[in-house]
Each structure stands twice: as C-alpha cells, then as structure tokens.
Amino acid sequence: MSRHAEAVLEGVGLAFGYARDAFVFSEWSERFVPGEIVALTGASGRGKSTLLYVLGLMTRPTAGEVLLGGHPVGSLSDRERAWLRATRLGFVFQDAALDPARTILDNVVETSLYRRADRRGSVLRARGLLERFGVEHRVQSRPGQISGGQAQRIALCRALMNDPQVLLADEPTGNLDQASAAVVLGAFRERAEQGAAVVIATHDGALMAQCDRRIEL
C-alpha cells in the first residue's frame, strides 16, 4: 500500500499532557493509509496507549488535530465524535474490556445500539464473527468464564462488528499465547486487506515484525 494514498487517519501536531506543561508526547504528526498495519512502539510511559486513545477520538488532544477521512474532528460535538467512534472506528483494548455482567453475545452486539443498527442483523453478524474466531460455543458465557485469549478474540469480534475504517489495538497480544496471537494478527491483516488502516500499540517483537510499518515514540 502506497504511503501517498489518501490517509484515512491523520494526526497533525498532536500533543497530550495529563498535567499542564508536562506532555506525554508533543508535535506528533503521522498519516495512516488504508491497507497498512502500523506498529506504535516505544518504552513504557512514552504515550503509546494515550496516542491510540487520542487517535480513536476518545479523548481530545491538548494541542494539534486529528483528521478522519481528511476531515478535522477537533471541532465536532461529543455526539458527533461518539457517532464516528461507533461507525468508523474499531478498538481492541489491552484487557479486552468486556462487560462482566453480560453474556459474550451481548458484549459483541452492544455496539449496534450506539450505531443504531438492527439488532437481529447484528446478532447474526456477531454469531458469524464468533464462529470465525472459534468462540461461538461461548455465546451465552460470561467474560469471567472464559480465558484471556478467548476474551481478546471476543473483543476483536466486537471491534469488527461495524467494519471499521480504522482499527486501533492496544497491546492486543500482550496476554495471549502464540496461537491466539496468530489468530488476532490474522484478523488484523484481513481487515487491512479489506481497506482499513490498522494501528497497534505493542511491545511484542513478533507482532511488530508482522506489521507494515513501525513508529517509535
């Protein structure tokens, strides 16, 4: 995939600090084009996860601008940013972040509410994704009853529910065995081939090696 293709996601002069004048990163700019998998790497505390949340429109940068599909999103309202997260972005959290009180199927289908999708169709799609990732037999289980690898695959199913243009993943293989990590990476590659940009924050050398590009923070 050419770096000169139109960026689906772009950060321009981004800076973020939890405290005034104490930036985790600053003046950070990068473009992400469809079809590539990019690894964000760097030592702990350099702001990989924070940058991922900023790029995922979950928090606003202290300075700079995020462009989604070429359009700046900084001036959008909370509702508009939420709508973009629900419809155009997918996110795989480091610890899967499943709702422990709900079934696996409910966890995967949850996002359909936020993007106002038909529930029946969403359930069918969720079952299909769960089957594809080998966890269809756990649809009525609760997150506490499954392994970490299964939880991460379920989180991946949830992130893929809306066919995201941008897939963001925070240490997605950190707690997984080699086989599970391979399944997750395969899913990222497939999604990228379908035209999405995939951005992964990781320490995992094996995963980094599979990525198209690596950005050091």
Partner: peptide, 16 residues
C-alpha cells in the same frame, strides 16, 4: 465507572 468508560469508548454518546 469502567463500564461507562467502555461504553463511551465504543461510541455511546453522553446523552445515550
């Protein structure tokens, strides 16, 4: 609070 943070991250608006 983690549950509400997750909902927000996945696309739930404040009003929702």
């Amino acid at each position: 609070r983690t549950d509400f943070g997750r909902r927000r991250a996945l696309g739930a608006s404040r009003s929702l």
